[in-house]
Structure formats: structure tokens, C-alpha cells
């Protein structure tokens, strides 16, 4: 047995002692990088506790001079139907996700595993469609929705996103790795193609589906652009859109806007803390910043 008492007692701060100059520089750079990332959030939380005139005060301080935190948060949570906004966001995000999975998974299976004339061209078209931003299609979509009188409905809020080209692409790549022989065995055993998807492909694709779900949910939770276009009444507002309520051409309540932003960001941040591994896998697998 080694004699433990002989080891020199290490001072508690010894482990913070820099090992070399290179390490010091690395740490400083990392710290600066982290600060750049975190500072907007600190700014947001700090501003959410200030009165409007102090938010853009030239004499900036992180600690509010006049504390208006209670008023701002009370106003955001209780003076407007905040739970309705949250529910709208949930309905839209979950609705979009379910329809996206329903459309993308069969399409991806067909593109990955079925042989049919024109499948390569079709897949090329899918890839090409990734490059079209929503801003291009938003005007025709808007006009169409106006014509059919469906503006300001959940349908209108979900409609542009029911087919996710990105999901088709992601799942197709994932399904390609599924052994052909298992699919052939299933066909011999009498599975229908739908059953092959439901009973064989889906259970093996859980990681990909989870990853895409995180990606899709976060993207549509944070989406401001499309709800801003199609939502007109307060009872269809999403959480993210509700931030805009305190802004008008003449008078913007910045304190409350920031409080609102904090409250809207919170559910995602809390979800992230609980399901961090899932989020990270979602982001690394989808290869896109959420």
C-alpha cells in the first residue's frame, strides 16, 4: 500500500494554475467566444428588468438602475393570454411535426428503397427544393390563403411546412443504411410496404426521427416570419409572435418586449437543459444550427 500521507497537500487553487502560455491564450480566446455567445442573453435578461427609457440609455449597466422587473414580467404573463400563446405555439409546432413525419417518412422510404422509373430525377428535385427559401413562396401562399379565406387559422400557420424537404433528405439518407435483405425477407413473409415502414423501418429510425423532431420543433417555435404574415388576431398568436405586441410605430415598450423575449425563450432553454443529449444529437445529425 502506498502511503497517502506522504503526497504533498495540494492547494485548492493549484488546479487553476495555467500550465503554459498557450493554454492561457486558448482559455482567453474561449472565454471571449463564450462571452460573445452569452452576452445577448444577459443583455436580454438585464433589459427585461429595466424601464423602457433605460434600455437604450447611453450609460449602460447590466444591473438595472430602476428595477421594473416585477411590472414587466407581470405584464407579460398576466396581462395578456400568455398560456394561449404557448398553447398556439405547441399546437402549431406539434401539428407541423406530425404532418412532416407523415409525409416525409413514406417519401423517404420510396426514394431510398424502391426502384421506380425517375427516382433519381425525383430525388434531384427534392434536393433542389431545399434551396428555395420560404420568402420566395410566401407571397403566392399568402394570396392563396386570402382567396380561400383561411387566413388567421392554424391551417394557415402550418400549411407551408407540411412537407419538409429537409426531412425527406435526412430520412432517405438514414433509410438507405437499412439492410435490403430484411426488406426482402419481409416481402416474402407477406408484409405490405406500409407495414415494412411501420414495423421495421420506424423502430430502427428512432434516433433520426428524434433528431429531426428537435430540429423541426425548435425551428417552428422560433419562427417569427410566417406567423407575422398570417396571424391577425391575438387568440392565434404564437409565443414568439406575442413579443411583437409591445412594438408599434410610435411607442415601443422595450422593457416588456425583452421580458416577453425571456419568457418565450425559457421553455426551449428549459427543455434543452432536460434533454441536452437529444438536442445535441439532433443538431449534429441534422448538421444545421437549430
Amino acid at each position: 500500500m502506498a502511503d497517502i500521507s506522504q503526497t504533498p497537500t495540494a492547494l485548492w487553487f493549484d488546479r487553476f494554475k495555467p500550465k503554459s502560455l498557450g493554454r492561457v491564450i486558448t482559455s482567453v480566446l474561449l472565454f471571449l467566444g463564450a462571452w460573445v455567445m452569452v452576452f445577448p442573453f444577459i443583455w436580454m435578461i438585464s433589459s427585461s428588468m429595466k424601464p423602457t427609457d433605460e434600455v437604450y440609455d447611453a450609460d449602460f449597466s447590466i444591473i438595472p438602475k430602476t428595477f421594473k422587473g416585477f411590472e414587466n414580467y407581470y405584464g407579460v404573463i398576466f396581462e395578456q393570454p400568455y398560456l394561449v400563446f404557448l398553447m398556439n405555439s405547441m399546437i402549431v409546432c406539434i401539428g407541423i411535426l406530425i404532418i412532416q413525419l407523415l409525409t416525409a417518412i413514406p417519401a423517404a422510404y420510396a426514394l431510398a428503397k424502391l426502384k421506380f422509373r425517375g427516382s433519381t430525377i425525383l430525388f434531384g428535385t427534392v434536393i433542389a427544393a431545399i434551396t428555395i427559401p420560404i420568402n420566395v413562396t410566401s407571397i403566392p401562399l399568402y394570396i392563396g390563403l386570402v382567396r380561400v379565406g383561411l387566413l388567421d387559422t392554424y391551417f394557415a400557420m402550418m400549411f407551408p411546412f407540411i412537407v419538409s424537404v429537409f426531412a425527406i433528405f435526412l430520412f432517405r439518407q438514414f433509410f438507405r443504411g437499412f439492410p435490403d435483405s430484411i426488406i426482402q425477407a419481409a416481402r416474402v413473409d407477406g408484409f405490405s410496404e406500409i407495414e415494412i415502414i411501420l414495423r421495421l423501418i420506424l423502430p430502427s429510425a428512432v434516433p433520426a426521427i428524434a433528431a429531426f423532431s428537435v430540429f423541426s420543433f425548435v425551428a417552428h417555435w422560433n419562427d417569427l416570419y410566417w406567423p407575422l404574415i398570417v396571424v391577425q388576431s391575438q387568440d392565434k398568436m404564437t409565443a414568439t409572435l406575442s413579443m411583437m405586441q409591445y412594438q408599434s410605430a410610435f411607442d415601443t415598450d422595450y422593457g416588456r418586449t425583452y421580458a416577453s423575449a425571456t419568457v418565450v425563450t425559457a421553455p426551449m432553454v428549459i427543455a434543452f437543459l432536460f434533454a441536452r443529449r437529444l438536442f445535441i444529437r439532433g443538431i449534429t445529425m441534422t448538421g444545421v444550427k437549430g
Binding site: P179, S181, I182, Q184, A185, A186, R199, L200, P203
Partner: peptide
């Protein structure tokens, strides 16, 4: 009404 056995067994993994 045929049965087939595959090289990699092709068992349903789940």
C-alpha cells in the same frame, strides 16, 4: 408460398 433464408439472416432486429 416460398420461404427464403438470406445470407445475413435478415432477422427483424426489433
Amino acid at each position: 408460398n416460398i420461404a427464403m433464408v438470406f445470407q445475413d439472416y435478415a432477422l427483424y432486429p426489433h
